[in-house]
Design a binder for these strands. Sequence first.
DNA 1: GGACAATTCAGGATATTTTATTGAATATCA
DNA 2: TGATATTCAATAAAATATCCTGAATTGTCC
Lengths: 158, 158
Amino acid sequence: MIYKLDKLDTRILNILQKDASLSTKDIAEQIGLSVSPTHERIKRLKSEGYIEKYVALVNREKLGKHLLVLCTVTLKEQSIETLKNFEESVTQFKEVLEVLCIAGGQDYLLKIVVDDVDDYHTFVVTHLSSLSNISTLSSSFVLKEIKRETAFHLNFYL
Amino acid sequence: MIYKLDKLDTRILNILQKDASLSTKDIAEQIGLSVSPTHERIKRLKSEGYIEKYVALVNREKLGKHLLVLCTVTLKEQSIETLKNFEESVTQFKEVLEVLCIAGGQDYLLKIVVDDVDDYHTFVVTHLSSLSNISTLSSSFVLKEIKRETAFHLNFYL
DNA sequence: GGACAATTCAGGATATTTTATTGAATATCA
DNA sequence: TGATATTCAATAAAATATCCTGAATTGTCC
């Protein structure tokens, strides 16, 4: 069921990853097709899961979320049960935007967004540190977000 | 000028951050307004920079980007010139989706997306390690992306 | 308190876009 | 070569975005 994407599909994905507010007509012109097939391709890319969703990206600072924190967590045990339990718990916190399981040492990296330092302290004390099986917890404040990009650059390989 | 957003604005932003493919009509119904003022608010939020852009989020694995790497970089010197030079260079690599300047040790964390380990090796050798003033370079492979969220949860404070 | 100004809203008119349908052109394969 | 499937363009319709007008609300200053 792996549908092979052609050059036009990858071009559509590259365009929509950068600007999803473009009309089908605009995209059609860029890739050199008419509106109908362009629309069907976009619809197919969505329905087949290549496009997961369309979202608005907002300005973090302007909306009062001044603090971005990277938090490294190691667990006491590494049983499947423990890992799964931790993952499900930490995923539910709205302050935690990303959870990555890192190779080497079996630990996790969390990306956390909060208003300020006070807010972060409250979050750690009342939510994060109360999770069971946490061994160590190390927080690094982000001084500056130099680049934030959600688009992967896709190439079409024959 | 600081908090000119009201409750309806924050609700709109929360909705659009999760699903930007909703029609103005849908959003209007959710927040209890008619289409016109809802449309005006969305347009204003965009023009005033609260909404930076609309994008399509794609499925990384399905599109052949199988390897996500976190790379920590420290520089030899920390002069403003050196930092700026590094930041401008590393930002231009399409494989590098995020560049964060981290407190403590004056170093950087890069989020890098590539096809596979071979691809990563090529990237490091031909691009990353050839940058000047790099002191140390430590790569951590991501075993599993447990949560990826782009939406901040916004509250309206009186 | 009253009147004016500014803001925010709803409803409707129009332009644009999305979406579905049809048939033609092209490619595929026996 | 002939049949089948795929991809495309063109058209029409439905839905939506966008603009405009006037009413209601709020805030402000006499």
